[in-house]
Amino acid sequence: MLGVFGVEARTEAVYRAMLEHPTADLATIAGDVGASVEQVRAELDLLADLMLVEVVAGARPFQAIPPEQAIAVLVAREEERLAERQRQVTEARADMGDLVQSFVRSRTLQGPDGLVEEIDDPRVVTSRLYQLTQAARERVSFMLPGDALPPGAIEPSARLDDELLERGIPLRVIVTDASLEAPHWRGHLARQVTRGVQARSHPAPPHRIVIVDGTVAILPRDDSSGALVVHGPDLVAPTAALFDAIWQAAIPLVPDTVGAADGEFSDARVRQVVALLAQGQKDEAIARRLNVSVRTVRRLVSAALSALHAESRFEAGVLAVKRGWVA
């Protein structure tokens, strides 16, 4: 039991023997634990250091303290050790910024005006992304074309998301419709949405993009696996406009509709249909986007019209905008 506090098995055995036989001498305790008298003396010294035995007057120099007091002493010692470790980790995290800065600076080519950075190494791109998101103050937006992230990349992605959310930074993510076919990715997105991430899916997002506070953007390079980092509202504005256009055309992901089965009629599913109706999508296209049958789409459209008290699809779109269901 005391092993969780770093107490060795023989040391605990001596302590237990002293509890069970308070009047036993060293030879008796040694026989109980299968050790020599000298070994028991050494264990008593360790127990004294741990404050699990106390010195008493008389023939026996040590007496075991009651178990509840022993646990309290060990817990207090462990809490003190953990607090010190946490302090060290906090200091290391603060120092990490300087290390990342050295790593990135030596591997980044920056123009004389400081508006564009060129990065060739994808590892450096990751470190630069860490720097930029750590400095975020308003909002971070990601556009992720292509397939789902592999399972091994999920944890780092979730950690980055959580760090931003803990600081109160809104986070938007656009993924491809096709990527949601991967259960691990679909489940990850569903969990992140419950934590506050705003996620939407689109048939074909055009580029991998990260935008930080509307003033910095990370863009892919056509001729390498690196990236360009552009600075300043003027340079970032076209990329932000592209992101916003794709965002408006994408459909929201919510926990009860990510991977929802055919025929589910939750409010969130109905709102997804309304968002697509407002884009002018036909039933067949909506069915493909939501991975349901056309028949189900028509029933969902009927439910949407009823929920909005609308007489036509056009009116449903207008009312949905007024209610804030869609932008």
Results as ranks from 00 to 15, higher is better:
9 A>L: 11
10 R>V: 04
21 H>L: 12
25 D>Y: 07
28 T>Y: 10
30 A>I: 04
33 V>L: 03
36 S>K: 10
38 E>R: 15
50 L>N: 07
53 V>F: 05
55 V>T: 12
55 V>L: 10
59 A>F: 11
63 Q>E: 14
64 A>K: 06
75 V>K: 09
78 E>K: 09
80 E>R: 15
82 L>V: 08
87 R>Q: 14
88 Q>V: 10
91 E>L: 13
93 R>V: 10
96 M>Y: 12
100 V>C: 01
102 S>N: 10
117 E>R: 09
127 S>A: 15
129 L>W: 10
144 L>P: 05
151 P>Y: 04
158 A>S: 02
160 L>A: 13
166 E>M: 06
170 P>L: 05
182 A>W: 03
184 H>L: 01
187 G>F: 06
188 H>C: 12
188 H>W: 15
190 A>K: 15
199 A>V: 14
200 R>Q: 09
202 H>Q: 02
202 H>K: 06
204 A>P: 04
205 P>W: 03
208 R>L: 14
216 V>Q: 13
217 A>R: 07
219 L>S: 03
225 S>K: 13
238 P>Q: 00
246 I>A: 07
252 P>E: 09
253 L>I: 11
271 R>W: 12
272 Q>H: 03
273 V>K: 01
295 R>L: 06
299 R>D: 07
300 L>A: 11
308 L>S: 07
315 E>M: 01
315 E>I: 05
318 V>D: 02
322 K>Y: 01
324 G>L: 05
